[in-house]
Design a protein around this nucleic acid. Structure first.
Lengths: 247, 247
DNA sequence: TGTACATCAGTGAACGCGCGTTCACTGATGTAC
DNA sequence: TGTACATCAGTGAACGCGCGTTCACTGATGTAC
């Protein structure tokens, strides 16, 4: 920091470039903050500008339009959960697959509770009038890839609840899951295990969504502990489904 | 219709009253239609007025505010799915519990696909800036009551996957589910079965939400058949969880 | 090192828009005698 | 049955608001010679 004047480097970032990066980050932070106040649908460029003390027109030096800002936020959110999940897995990498699964889902839930509006940006109802561009696909796969990685290593489908499904049911579901096999590295996973994996995805993201969106009022006790316990039980249930319930 | 002039009745509906009821219904229909176009967050009184060809100020003869209109729509939506589910169960009442469960969930999914915005009004991310009044609680319980009714009659928890959960896990989840026991008629259901029931609720509503909100792109084939097959498989998986997998 | 020009960040006014809600009003429907 | 008054539905103009985006501008930072 003290000796940062080494101008001899090839790729020097000029003062302007550094300022631009900093201000872009500041704008994104303000936008994230706006999201907390107001929700994605009514996120407003003018409010963001107000928060950082800029003229509203200045934003257009950084983002070509409101939709573009939204896209940036969405990508950021996907990368954010993705990273959180990757770290949780890394920290638990010495433990069993089931423990890694638990660690990752806990980290995702914690992230969701801490960033509810970023969560609903990517897992809630779609933002009206906004169409996600293809840039969002890659970051969106980080979290699923972590989970599939764990399951590929530790699932023993024969030993799980899915094994009790009629083969015809599994077969027709498997036929429907062509795109999943094409998109993700799941070649080594059986149809039944893939179905169970996706169901656990649905269940646990559904559980987080319901908790966040208030659909568990009058169902689950409002205290943080109770909510966590309930989520824990659902994780364990999913591990039974997946057949990786060795602690 | 021809002989409708029997004015002798005690509770006659005057012409004004009839007109009022009709127009209220027409406004609600227009609002529902607006919802389809635009999503709940940006439903606008003026657009509703435009659609029925009234001055925007006239709406205030029927609804005191925009929030009140939203509340009416929410209640309508809950009653609508509730009714659909009740009818599905009634039609299948001669069949097994598992079949009734399947019939009800299929009817719910079908309703959701036909009325996506009414669905996300009640099961999606909350409408920003809107706080639901208590009038919505009663209609919101119709669907869960149908499902719990079926499960109370047909669940045999001992025979299900939940039975494999460690007792400690079940116990702490059960402690969290106090409000559920207080709100719903579930006295005769075991803790494990209640947990499984709520998990099936989460999973299947989650599945419908993800399908509707486009989160299954690149995962499940886009064709209607494939989607239905996938949903079917998830229902069956939940029946295994619930221990009511006798056809 | 110094000058001349190009690039870029940021400003502030303005555009046209749609919104929820209020208000004083007109005219039709209902009610009491 | 007829009149006098009260109730209500619907109108249209107006309020104040916030929005996304454009535009001509000023001044600072960067670049070429």
């Amino acid at each position: 920091m003290a000796a940062a004047e080494d101008t001899s480097q090839r790729r020097v970032s000029t003062a302007r470039e550094r300022a631009r990066a900093e201000i872009t980050a500041e704008l994104l932070a303000a936008a994230r903050h706006q999201l907390v106040e107001v929700g994605a649908g009514s996120l407003s460029l003018r409010a963001v500008a107000r928060e950082v003390g800029m003229a509203s027109s200045a934003i257009y030096r950084y983002f070509p339009s409101r939709d573009d800002l939204l896209t940036r936020l969405i990508i950021e959110a996907y990368d954010d959960v993705g990273l959180v999940a990757e770290q949780a897995q890394a920290n638990a990498s010495e433990q069993s697959g089931a423990q890694q699964f638990r660690a990752v889902w806990h980290s995702v839930r914690r992230w969701a509770l801490e960033h509810p509006h970023q969560y609903s940006l990517i897992f809630g109802s779609p933002v009206p009038g906004y169409a996600a561009p293809t840039d969002t696909i890659a970051p969106a796969t980080r979290l699923p890839e972590v989970l599939l990685g764990i399951l590929t290593e530790s699932t023993t489908a024969s030993d799980s609840t899915v094994a009790l499904l009629p083969p015809a049911t599994v077969a027709s579901a498997a036929a429907a899951l062509g795109p999943a096999r094409a998109t993700m590295p799941v070649a080594s996973i059986s149809d039944a295990a893939l179905l169970a994996a996706l169901t656990s995805w649905t269940t646990l993201l559904g559980a987080i969504s319901f908790e966040l969106f208030g659909h568990t009022h009058n169902v689950v006790d409002d205290s943080a502990n109770c909510r966590a316990d309930y989520f824990d039980a659902q994780i364990d249930l999913m591990l039974l489904l997946l057949g990786s319930h060795h602690t």
